[in-house]
């Protein structure tokens, strides 16, 4: 609670919190903000025509239509849900793997520690983005096939962090006491150790949601992400790729295809980074308030 109060008091992180709240509201209210056509999958962006060239904003379609006449406003609203979903799923699984392996390594120590930490080193020697590209080029494009390698190549920092935290609390008296009266290892880890060491890791992990959304959209940009027409910001930006340089004599002719999806994505990532930055200041013992 103290941390939350400090986040609200700091003007930079307050801005981040407000932005984040805005996106949460948009994601929840998507069915009312942009009602999907009856009987169709709400995550498919409706097409308002069949020509390739983007159509500028009009009264009917306030943010315009991007390449292939996909509705930009609709895509952005439902894309908010995609962004949260992808980010949260990846983070939850990363944290879960990291916490399990990290706590086993730290609690049992010795050989277990050595094996698991070397295992972590091996995964750390995988180049992140290229590792994801390897996976996707083998199993084919798609959102799920992007999320799996993002999880598999992203849990290592959390395992290391949780290991360090547990090593710090392992010799505390309440843990020794619990062990002395014969509490099982599983219970000691889940009831006594984790509640006292997990919090900073969870916060750090959730701050990564922004960067995950960037990674996913980068893969969509390379044509390895969501299928065409799926409500995903990255894909809407990759639509814009062919129209960035505009028309002869009018470079900015198709500005709306890149500005609106780009703005949505930058603000979303920014909100996480602003909070995360202030949070790291709060957690950094070397910086005095």
């Amino acid at each position: 609670m103290n941390i939350l109060r400090r986040l609200v008091k700091n003007r930079i992180s307050l801005l981040g919190l407000i932005l984040l709240l805005f996106f949460v509201v948009v994601a929840i209210a998507a069915p009312w903000l942009a009602p999907p056509p009856k009987g169709s999958d709400p995550y498919r962006i409706p097409r308002r025509g069949w020509t390739l060239e983007p159509t500028p904003p009009s009264a009917k379609y306030p943010l315009g239509l991007t390449q292939g006449q996909y509705d930009i406003y609709y895509g952005l609203v439902w894309g908010t849900r995609t962004a949260f979903r992808v980010g949260i799923i990846v983070i939850v699984f990363r944290a879960l793997i990291g916490i399990i392996l990290g706590s086993i390594a730290a609690y049992y120590g010795g050989l277990w520690d050595e094996i698991l930490m070397r295992f972590t080193d091996i995964f750390m020697s995988f180049p992140y983005l290229i590792g994801v590209v390897v996976f996707v080029s083998i199993f084919g494009p798609g959102l799920n096939n992007v999320m799996i390698p993002l999880i598999a190549l992203g849990w290592m920092p959390y395992a290391r962090m949780i290991r360090g935290n547990i090593l710090a609390v392992k010799q505390e008296e309440y843990v020794l006491a619990a062990r002395a009266i014969g509490v099982s290892d599983f219970k000691i880890i889940t009831r006594h150790i984790l509640p006292n060491s997990i919090f900073p890791v969870l916060i750090q992990a959730s701050m990564q949601i922004g960067s995950i959304v960037i990674s996913v959209s980068a893969l969509s940009f390379l044509g390895l992400g969501a299928p065409e027409g799926y409500a995903d910001w990255g894909q809407m930006l990759s639509f814009a790729r062919n129209w960035m340089l505009g028309d002869q004599g009018n470079v900015l002719k198709y500005w709306f295809t890149v500005v609106y999806p780009g703005l949505a994505m930058v603000l979303f990532v920014l909100s996480w980074n602003l909070i995360g930055d202030a949070f790291r200041d709060i957690m950094d013992p070397r910086i005095q308030a």
């Binding site: 922004g210 960037i214 959209s217 980068a218 940009f221 990255g234 930006l237 814009a240 790729r241 960035m244 890149v258 780009g262 994505m265 930058v266 990532v269 920014l270 980074n273 602003l274 930055d277």
Partner: peptide
Amino acid sequence: AITLWSMPDFVLGLA
């Protein structure tokens, strides 16, 4: 700096 860091690399690159 955080705003630039929040930019997807391809959006900034295209700009």
